[in-house]
Design a protein around this nucleic acid. Structure first.
Lengths: 352, 352
DNA sequence: GCGATTTCTGATAACGTTATCAGAAATCGT
DNA sequence: ACGATTTCTGATAACGTTATCAGAAATCGC
């Protein structure tokens, strides 16, 4: 006599380990052992079970495994942006694909946290077992996310870095070095008056790493060569701002023969402004762009000399850092600084 | 006397519903009822339980809920690309953020499938309960993914569309209409010789929608106005290809006064070529670009007149389509065609 | 040939949640 | 005041998997 089922079985459910066990004529744990390549299984049994798996088209239930295993096998990515619309101007597609690819290789899932995140909801991501760890983008020198996660002992990796790095894993663009290389390249070409269109004032004020460190790098590089600084804080995402910023720079120092920007777009604006001032690029003035830029560099006329990083490589690396740490929590923190690659195109030239 | 625990309890585990129940002095199902806002709970009990939840900092275990609930609350996004590196030239960041935002609003997770996907692994995504549904990008007229998922009765939504649309949900760019609008705009400006730089031959051959339909739209538009066609199939992702394609077009028909391209990059190349032929844009020849382009349109000199869609809106919509269908499987298929927006900038002008 | 070891298998509990049911307590109608 | 209804609560099973344990069968040592 059959005991009545209290919770009726879903008719449309998939094939489960129980079905496999029944068809192969073994118990459930035996199937599980075979699925997980445990020792002590008779070869003959293994064959029979695999046969059953094939004919039934069985695949293990991911959710059940995760519940039992105590890990979510899910990572999150967070960028502290106000509106998701704006994200495309800050993050390149390659950032996503690098992370997605690494995660997929390590059999992790990725969740992109786009909407505004509160301290409460950040902690909840961990507490409610939605994620095992998080990758933080756009880290500030003093970042509430870092402080909160550190206090609560939750795992995370930074792309970027904060002030106190004790025991934290990160991978970051070496912006200070980039500014040194940029200035070096220009000085070698004979330039002595080098202007800089840096990140917006708001970025410097809120202590965003690249802003802070690029300006430091610029100043110390000029110092090294005994040159005077001349810079403007401008917006990143329009040709116009580069245009106006360049006009300002030229007004302050008409002797400028080179301009460094931190965005390909503003570099394009810079060229526009210079041309309007009757200066041809690179003949009368050189222009360089630092940062990611995708195909922009070669669209602009003349094509831009740049210092570049690969967002794909960086985000890929960050994800590997994360998964390795999750696989072995005793691993020490890893801290990686990535130098940029100088790509000389048409927009820089020696002083005549 | 305590029965010995066979599987020892993990010491570092989080707060569970059982802990809440114990502190509040009620049973586990009662807490569950309160969490899920079920009826028939005494107000006094509700208060006490909420109090316990607050003091313990309890959050429901997502994985457990999913297992019990029978839904993964996870969607996937798939683009059939060979190498993830190349994805950045095909997909805009906004595509990701639109999906991520919609998913997050509906409390879904997103998994971006980047690596090469086989029919087997695609089915496994569903069978192993990793996802509830998938959003397909770059759908071909005859697409194996569509055929496979349709046969197996798995839920999916297309961005793009295939040939047989019976019962399928999609949202797609109306490329045919776009070509009509482009030609209309140019004809109104007095142009009678309109060239077209279309998608690469491989796209046409493998039946990728925008390629097929834009060429059809071009031909039927010219037909409508009694004009002759003149087009080249070229690569999308470099200025050089636009440059060379334009040279070819001019050789075939030196009378051309307008060129339509399907990529901002090739449009830039087009302008370069025209200038080299001694033709100024837009004075002697107009140039238009169709498609996504981000900030490109305004970087180029002269800035590009375009027909644009918002990838954010489109991917957002696609995700909503998906979640609505999941919430109510009886919903009929939804089919949405999105017209582009004409944005007139500097690169088009009436014929002199 | 017999105890000790090794190899193999299955019963059982557990991961954290929700649905079902039945029973207790409170309220209602007359 | 008493049966019928409504409100509330807890025991139990279930989602699909894996870990632990104990026992059976096979192999080994001498």
């Amino acid at each position: 006599m059959n005991k009545r089922n209290k919770t009726p079985r879903n008719e449309n459910r998939g094939v489960t380990i129980a079905d496999v066990a029944k068809t192969a004529g073994v118990s459930i744990p035996t199937v599980s052992r075979i699925l997980n390549d445990k020792e002590y299984v008779a070869e003959e049994t293994r064959q029979r079970v695999h046969e059953a798996i094939r004919t039934l088209g069985y695949t293990p239930h991911t959710q059940a495994r995760r519940l039992r295993g105590g890990a979510t096998m899910t990572l999150a990515l967070h960028h502290p942006i106000e509106s998701p619309h704006d994200l495309s101007s800050v993050i390149e597609t390659s950032y996503f694909t690098g992370i997605a690819e690494a995660a997929s290789e390590k059999e992790y899932f990725i969740n992109f946290l786009i909407s505004r995140l509160t301290p409460e909801s950040l902690l909840n991501m961990y507490r409610s077992n939605q994620i095992d760890g998080i990758i933080l983008l756009q880290v500030r020198m003093d970042d509430w996310r870092v402080n909160l996660l550190r206090e609560n002992n939750y795992l995370f990796v930074m792309i970027g870095r904060c002030a106190d790095l004790e025991g934290l894993s990160f991978i970051d663009l070496d912006f200070e070095n980039a500014m040194l290389l940029a200035c070096e390249h220009l000085v070698e070409l004979g330039h002595r008056n080098i202007g800089f269109l840096t990140y917006p004032q708001s970025w410097h004020k809120s202590g965003i790493g690249p802003a802070v460190r690029s300006l430091e790098g610029y100043k110390s590089a000029l110092n090294k060569y005994g040159l005077n600084s001349c810079y403007r804080e401008i917006g990143l995402n329009s040709v116009e701002e580069g245009f106006e910023g360049t006009n300002d720079l030229l007004q302050e120092n008409p002797e400028l023969t080179a301009i460094i920007t931190v965005s390909h777009l503003t570099a394009a604006g810079s060229i526009k402004a210079l041309v309007q001032h009757g200066r041809s690029v690179p003949k009368d003035c050189s222009v360089m762009a630092i940062g990611f830029g995708g195909n922009f560099a070669s669209v602009v006329t003349p094509s831009l000399t740049t210092l570049e990083w690969s967002p794909y490589e960086i985000s890929y690396q960050a994800t590997i850092l994360m998964t390795e740490k999750l696989a072995n929590k005793k691993l020490p923190a890893q801290q990686i600084l990535v130098p940029p690659k100088l790509i000389v195109r048409e927009s820089t030239k020696e002083v005549e």
